[in-house]
Design a protein around this nucleic acid. Structure first.
Length: 792
DNA sequence: GAACCATCAAACGG
DNA sequence: CCCGTTTGATGGTT
């Protein structure tokens, strides 16, 4: 159950040391996608170094397999030697892992590049963990990039950007020269016991009795037709547990329940939506999953909340940790489980506050979504109506009373406390449904009562946005004006890069500098094959004249996708499966069939824009919901075998390699049977021909992932790559995905730097980890996480 | 502590 | 597209 990739690096060193890194499958289980364990092996023999010589596998000393803590993580976690690892046998390790800022064990000293003897300001505070938000403290001289946290991609710091590109490009040369790739598999003892059951995989949670129970049930062989009253609850239960385990929410303590942070909030929302989408899919095919009720949004939230999986449980005034101004939500329950706005329906959330001896209610947040006659056109001002005054049953109106939320708002006016405002906006893509935008905190300026159309008293509250917050709702209004044409988008170079090839334009924008656009290429909508990807299959297609429908058990397209349609009616990805079978030429269904999502062209308004520090990038004017389809990777399909090891010999910076490891959702699959690995050697070149996807940059905390999609005609099949949103993406947030990694060891200065280049064609992106390595009588020390983003 | 109630949901059908 | 119906969850109040 070991390696799927291994890369050797040979470096000039005296004595020479060759080390390989193996990403271990088993360790991925239960870890978040940004983390993983890596094994570092010391090879016992030396090779002809300084060239691309290929080390022979026979020289590996398997007894010297060592474990290091996660190489790719947002915050470095340093090993806790006793009992930390569940995947390895404890063994004395010649590695000593230390944060780069200390404290250091006896005999270990601060090391280059984190220590500069000339820098008296060196930060050795152990509490900073080395990768907080102050990367600029580290001294690198003029040519070495400053360490930056891995997640700095989203919030780049000025120190990290300036002047680092040169040095990284410089270092690319000698690292890539010294890299040797070897493709043989180190471990043949792969655990084949895993099973793929009914569309989602079993997860090994030994403490989970329901999972065990289900595994042993022969009842499952009835193709789920059983109406056993407990039958479906086992499915749902194990589904929830799988998600929770995958995203480290299984054991959720009171501390995290009371106060969240970005990672907790992100993961909870991630699991919520995965669960909600899966329940949606199950609900569509009722006879396969009896007992699944309507309202998957409520069901998913209730499942999580009964397990205590929620955060910011304690009400508070002001911002909620982990939720940023501009964040978007698609369901009221999402606001609830992250603590932004607790009531599932009511518009005013409030809490009791001790004032001397008495308690009085104060408002903490409001949702303005059109239920009453609110006025919010100004953008920074909101006239909000009080609650009550209507009888829901018979719609009878009466005077509002100064109680509950109304009273709380009144008290908040006098106490001048901040009130969070969530603006509900009609979702254009879905005629029904709303998008909720967190618009930051407001203060109540005045209140009054007025008569409404029925002559009843209604309370009104004037709220004014607290200045200095990022644009949120105002941005939506701007974008609407760009679309209307009532206000111009600044910096537009080309209004439509596609020249009408897509149903929606793709704008080319640069409001950063005076570069007039990326190098010339031809816009094409789809992936182009010079020959079929595969000719072995024979497939007659479906006969769904009006388009494939959920629950049509006879539809062969549905059958190939484990009995479900992979997309919702709104075009949101529902399935967990590693490969999607879309309808193809052989199918009788129309082009707008629900199962042709990636063939219908763009659904969101994209823009290619100049970034501050990474060349050109891709983003969307429209909000994209989690699982939403973005686009496919267009270009020329290439045979990987015709390329060099790294495919970069032609200077092609626009490559997509489907054979690379990508971590998103791999944790959700039981990988012991290899089912999650994409067995398709598809490499796409978008150098000459491509679409917006070729501009998508890499991130270690991406908001987009890709999935392979198979389209079949009678005797041929074609593989395509489609991109989907990992989480809800607000407008104009850059779209990024994880390119996948190659790990490189590099001797640098006094230490070994573990570095990673994330794609064959891209310069070194991430330099990693802090180790002290005792080998052959020499001690090497390596630096901690710092990251480089070079753009394209 | 249980039951009830109020509430700017969300999906669906006509 | 608007409207009503249905199915609902949470949190506060009784």
């Amino acid at each position: 159950m070991e390696s799927f990739q291994r890369y050797y690096v040979s470096k000039h060193r005296n004595p020479p040391v060759v080390i390989s890194l193996i990403y271990t499958h088993s360790s991925l289980r239960g870890s978040r996608f940004v983390q993983g364990w890596w094994k570092v092996r010391k090879l016992t023999s030396s090779y002809g170094l300084g060239s691309n010589s290929n080390p022979s596998s026979g020289s590996i000393d398997k007894s010297r397999v060592l474990d290091l803590r996660p190489l790719r993580c947002l915050v470095p976690v340093f090993p806790n030697p006793p009992g930390m690892s569940s995947v390895t046998t404890p063994q004395p390790s010649p590695f000593v892992c230390t944060p780069p800022t200390g404290p250091f064990p006896p005999g270990i000293h601060p090391f280059y590049p984190f220590f500069n003897p000339n820098d008296s300001q060196q930060n050795l505070n152990p509490n900073t963990s080395g990768v907080s938000n102050q990367p600029g403290n580290h001294a690198f001289g003029n040519s070495i990039p400053a360490p930056v946290p891995l997640n700095s991609f989203r919030t780049p710091t000025p120190q990290a950007n300036g002047g680092t590109r040169q040095s990284v490009r410089g270092s690319r040369g000698h690292t890539s020269e010294s890299v040797v790739v070897e493709d043989d598999d180190y471990d043949d003892s792969q655990n084949q016991s895993g099973q793929h059951v009914s569309g989602f995989s079993q997860h090994d949670t030994e403490d989970d009795s329901t999972t065990r129970k289900r595994r042993g049930r022969p009842r499952k062989s009835n193709a789920g037709k059983s109406r056993d009253e407990h039958g479906d609850s086992f499915d749902v239960e194990s589904l929830v547990n799988k998600f929770l385990t995958s995203f480290k929410l299984k054991s959720f303590d009171d501390v995290r329940r009371a106060n969240g942070d970005k990672e907790i909030v992100d993961n909870i929302l991630l699991v919520y939506d995965l669960l909600r989408r899966r329940l949606t899919q199950l609900e569509e095919v009722k006879d396969k999953s009896p007992g699944i009720t309507r309202r998957p949004d409520l069901k998913a939230a209730s499942l999580l909340m009964t397990k205590g999986v929620r955060t910011n449980n304690t009400k508070r005034i002001g911002h909620v940790p982990g939720v940023e101004v501009g964040d978007i939500f698609f369901f009221r329950m999402e606001l609830c489980i992250v603590g932004l706005h607790a009531p599932s329906m009511a518009g005013i959330d409030y809490m009791n506050m001790k004032i001397t001896v008495d308690e009085e209610p104060v408002a903490v947040s409001i949702v303005s979504s059109g239920g009453y006659d609110d006025l919010g056109d100004d953008g920074d001002v909101l006239i909000y109506s009080g609650q009550g005054g209507v009888q829901r049953r018979d719609k009878q109106m009466f005077d509002q009373k100064l109680e509950r939320g109304n009273l709380a708002l009144e008290k908040s006016l006098h106490r001048a406390n901040e009130v969070r405002v969530i603006r509900g906006i009609k979702d254009i893509t879905a005629s029904t449904g709303k998008i909720y935008v967190y618009d930051g905190v407001y203060k109540i300026q005045e209140s009054w009562a007025e008569k409404n159309n029925s002559g009843c008293n209604v309370f009104k509250y004037k709220l004014v946005r607290v200045p200095g917050q990022p644009e949120a709702f105002a941005l939506w209004k701007s974008i609407q004006q760009w679309k209307d044409g009532t206000a111009p988008r600044s910096g537009v170079i080309l209004p439509d890069l596609t020249s009408g090839a897509e149903p929606l334009p793709v704008t080319l924008v640069n409001d950063v500098d005076d570069e007039k656009g990326p190098a010339y290429f031809t816009y094409i909508r789809n992936l182009k094959y010079s020959k079929p990807f595969s000719t072995s299959k024979s497939f007659s297609g479906c006969q769904c004249i009006g388009g494939c429908q959920a629950g049509h058990t006879s539809c062969p397209c549905s059958q190939r996708n484990e009995g479900y349609l992979p997309y919702s009616s709104l075009g949101v990805l529902l399935t967990d499966e590693p490969l999607i079978y879309e309808c193809g030429e052989a199918c009788a269904c129309p082009p707008n069939c629900r199962n042709r999502m990636s063939q219908a062209g763009l659904k969101v308004r994209l823009e290619i824009f100049k970034t501050n520090d990474r060349g050109w990038g891709l983003r969307s004017w429209d909000p994209i919901r989690a699982g939403g389809f973005i686009c496919e990777y267009a270009g020329d399909a290439t045979d990987k075998s015709t390329l060099g090891d790294f495919g970069n010999d032609k200077g092609d910076n626009y490559f997509f390699d489907a054979t690379r490891s990508y971590e998103w959702l791999e944790a959700l699959h039981d990988d012991s049977n290899g089912s999650t690995k994409v067995p398709f050697p598809l490499v796409i070149s978008a150098k000459n021909n491509g679409n917006g996807a070729r501009f998508m940059n890499h991130s270690c905390s991406p908001n987009v992932f890709w999935k392979p999609i198979l389209r079949e005609s009678a005797n041929e099949s074609y593989l395509h790559i489609a991109f989907f949103a990992i989480r809800h993406i607000p407008p104009l947030q850059e779209l990024t995905f994880d390119y996948g990694m190659i790990i490189v060891l590099e001797a640098l200065g006094e230490g070994l730097i573990l570095s990673a280049i994330n794609c064959s064609f891209v310069p070194v992106r991430c330099l990693f980890y802090s180790i002290s390595y005792q080998a052959l009588g020499f001690r090497y020390q390596a630096a901690s996480i710092f990251t480089q983003f070079t753009g394209c």
